[in-house]
Design a protein around this nucleic acid. Structure first.
Lengths: 238, 238
DNA sequence: TTCATTGTTCGATGATAGCCGAAGCATCGC
DNA sequence: GCGATGCTTCGGCTATCATCGAACAATGAA
């Protein structure tokens, strides 16, 4: 008579409180690690692992391995839209919820990730480079366009030809620790960071062990002039 | 730490296969009886009753009592949108489903409901009257506008003043047995039907006990000229 | 009234699924 | 190499919840 589960299987995935908490934590387009999602949902890692594999099998989230971590994000904006719709119905029915807060503002703003720029400004830079078509991103791999090469030479005196390295890519998308979006790694990312310090636009914080990067006033202006503040909006797919 | 159920409660309502089947059966905006929804879901009436009260408590459906029956419909187009979104995600994940078929075409087309016109044409007539602003509908109650009175007098020689009755309203929305949308009842509905027979536009089927109404060729043309074929689209609320 | 139909409530049963402890891989840093 | 961290798999426990039988309430028809 009737067909299989259909929308019920998807809805039941969202229907579990633990999974729903995970999904709402991912709604802004960021990617979170499995253990963070477990913490968000208030469950142990082993339970979270079970939930995450179910969500992945249902096509709601997709993983990205990065070292020991496993980052999860929503598979697309349509998933977020459905979640928003459900939240709307829930609100209409009288249910509410709370939000989380930020922490460590300086570290979130700008910091060193190995040898390149990370944090809010790092993500912002890559977003701007994408929208200016300085780079072209196919899946995980990024490459510099011809306009990008011109831009690097002209604005920052970086010769793209000197960046090629036998064991390291020129451009690489690196998942950002605080923003949970990609910023630019690779030899270009490193070259940009060292250029910023050479030009006195920015410097690593003197406190030993700190990874905070402090921008000077003029440095921040010049940076903004080159890489705007094209703050990617919430649902943009990294 | 975390707030209440939030979207999980809503999603878990849709997450049960039986409830999901009920909701998808309601997605086209029609209203169905409790027992029909039970049949759609393949469960017994008592189980369906439990599900329906939960869905109603969750604000996804709303009931309308009509005689012995209890018709349920979605509370609004937003519910249907969320269900569509879930169906999209389910389809993307590889799940499918089937559809039901029609039956009893003549009876669905046009028939007598007590003393007025029901079926596809009955629903069509009320829809057309609404879009022509001949009637004004507030909630369940319908009233004839001044244009409506003019229209009735001019096109069909019906004097609205003769329709008032101590114990029966002039206009009344009556839930349609086959279409599951409203058609026009009340003294106006009855007057229209008898006028149609007087004008030889339509006649009750001669077979004893049949409630089918047969329209003549010219009758169908005249009827269409007055009440167009403003087929209400799926998500229009009744 | 009496009967039939529709829909509800109650109670018991059963199966699904979330949950965690313990152990097993994989990766990173030393 | 070693230990630490992050994540997964396995096994068993428990609770929630869908399901149906039976009885009850409400409405319409004869």
């Amino acid at each position: 008579m009737k067909a299989g589960p259909d929308i019920a299987v998807i809805a039941s995935l969202v229907g579990d409180p633990a999974r729903a908490n995970m999904l709402t934590a991912l709604m802004d387009g960021r990617a979170l690690t499995a253990s963070e999602l477990a913490h968000q949902a208030g469950i142990t890692p082993q339970t979270a692992s079970s939930h995450l594999s179910k969500l992945e099998a249902g096509g709601l989230i997709e993983p990205e391995k990065q070292g020991r971590h496993r980052y999860y994000r929503l598979t697309g904006p349509d998933v977020a839209h459905v979640l928003e719709g459900l939240a709307g119905l829930a609100e209409r029915a009288g249910h509410t919820r709370v939000r989380t807060g930020p922490k460590e503002p300086a570290l979130r703003r700008a910091r060193i990730c190995y040898d390149h720029l990370a944090g809010d400004l790092g993500v912002q830079m890559l977003n701007s480079m994408r929208s200016q078509r300085l780079v072209r991103q196919i899946k995980q791999s990024i490459e510099l366009t011809s306009e990008g090469k011109r831009f690097m030479a002209q604005a920052l005196q970086i010769d793209a030809n000197t960046l090629v390295h036998p064991r390291r890519p020129v451009c690489k998308a690196c998942l950002d620790w605080s923003e949970r979006r990609h910023h630019l790694a690779g030899t270009l990312g490193a070259a940009l960071m060292s250029r910023f310090t050479e030009l006195n636009w920015a410097a690593r914080d003197p406190t030993p062990g700190s990874r905070v990067v402090n921008f000077t006033r003029t440095g921040e202006k010049r940076f903004a002039a080159l890489f705007g503040d094209a703050t990617g909006h919430a649902l943009a797919k990294t």
